[in-house]
Amino acid sequence: MKSKLFIVLFMASACMVFAASMSVQVRSCKVRETPSQLGRVIGTLEYGTAVQAGVPQQGWYPVTMADGMKGWLHESALSKKTVAMRAGTTDVAVGVSSDEVALAGKGFNEQVEAKLKTDGVFDFTWVDRMMTFHVDPDQIRAFREQGRLPGGDQ
């Protein structure tokens, strides 16, 4: 009994040691039930959301969200930097480091793109249309099944 308790305590403390706060660095990402892009989607996180991330396994972090829900996120969706706030808004925290500000989108951002639109340098109509070409996970699953594509091991 004592040894079991020790193992549980050891595992819990190990998780606490390895859990680190990370931020979502993409506009939106799906949290998966298993470490796979074909895994069931159990939630969606937006840019800047902080999560507690455990030890990564083959490019996937086990994460715990603010509401306690657990799932998996691919490493390309996460950054170790903290997103303070989006630059250019009035509620940007005072005293954040330049790293944090950079991650908050300062630099090449929508403000620059808006100026290019106003100045008539580029036309973004088709770029915006491209962004609407969305394929959901169920469509991908069906497409792969119909095409008899083997594996899917990531």
Binding site: V26, R27, A102, F108, F122, F124, V127
Partner: peptide, 21 residues
């Protein structure tokens, strides 16, 4: 190091817009 995915995104949008010309 500091070129973030968001900045890359805005560069990519403008690159595509320029290619369309």
């Amino acid at each position: 190091e500091q070129l973030t995915p968001e900045q890359e995104y805005y560069i990519g949008r403008a690159v595509a817009a320029k290619v369309f010309q």
